[in-house]
Design a protein around this nucleic acid. Structure first.
Lengths: 130, 130
DNA sequence: TGAGTAATTAACCTATCGGTTAAATATAGA
DNA sequence: TCTATATTTAACCGATAGGTTAATTACTCA
């Protein structure tokens, strides 16, 4: 995994790591605190490894306080990834417009009244629930 | 790779695949056209695989026209990833503010007057040379 | 100093990733 | 039908990702 951007996206491509980031978005936490919700599913060293991935990706900063390693979000990695994404904004917005327009044509004429909310109108998901 | 979001970030975590997306942002292209810039570095089947990853991640749509498979960007995957990132905007903007503020303290006092416009004033090495 | 807590490192295992070459499939057109 | 072009599939391979357990390091505090 050569470049920084690949490293950052790679780090984001794991649900455990994203959960750790979500936790950190609510405030600083030690390794043990971060690990706690996962200890049924995996060991502490596994979490340590995830944290190292996040740290190397510029997504987490780790400090030290006695035997604790307080972690916090690092905006740098997030910003780099977001900046890259930004160049494609026009594409995702345009396809969202198409989706919206489509939904309008489906929902429109006389409001067919969704009888039962069971059949999804199409597409693997992305369906606005109501 | 269970969930869609992980799949999408995983797909973005490769420079070849990002280059393919960049190419597609300039317009539709066939597999062969997409592969062409990489054929020194890798084989055609390798590119086919990358395209499948992008397709499965909801980042590319593949059609058919005779023996060609015209590809185009799929905004869906991009939108999903961007939406996820959005929740962290405050963090990357805040850390950017810190960076800006810091640069201001370094650059500030009497406007040192950029003598010659040769050395690029930035660079990934955030480190002030000199 | 020695016991207890927090976290990391080492060594190992398996599955997946990104690549290969060779063969197969899909389509057009003479 | 035969040939040429575009693309995919199959089978394989080495490296790495993500997990494990056991051992080690880093601290605090009595």
């Amino acid at each position: 995994m050569q470049d920084a951007l690949s490293q950052t996206f790679q780090a984001l491509a794991d649900p455990t790591r994203r959960a750790i980031l979500a936790r950190l978005s609510k405030g600083e936490a030690s390794v043990g605190e971060l690990a706690e919700p996962f200890l049924n599913e995996m060991s502490l060293p596994a979490v340590t490894k995830h944290l190292k991935v996040l740290e190397n990706a510029g997504l987490v900063l780790k400090g030290r306080n006695a035997q604790f390693r307080p972690c916090q979000l690092n905006g740098d990695g997030l910003r780099v990834a977001a900046n890259w994404m930004e160049q494609y904004r026009v594409f995702w917005e345009e396809s969202f417009d198409r989706l919206e327009a489509y939904l309008k044509t489906v929902a429109a004429p006389s409001r067919p009244k969704p009888r039962i909310e069971s059949k999804k109108p199409k597409g693997k998901s992305h369906g606005r629930k109501k």
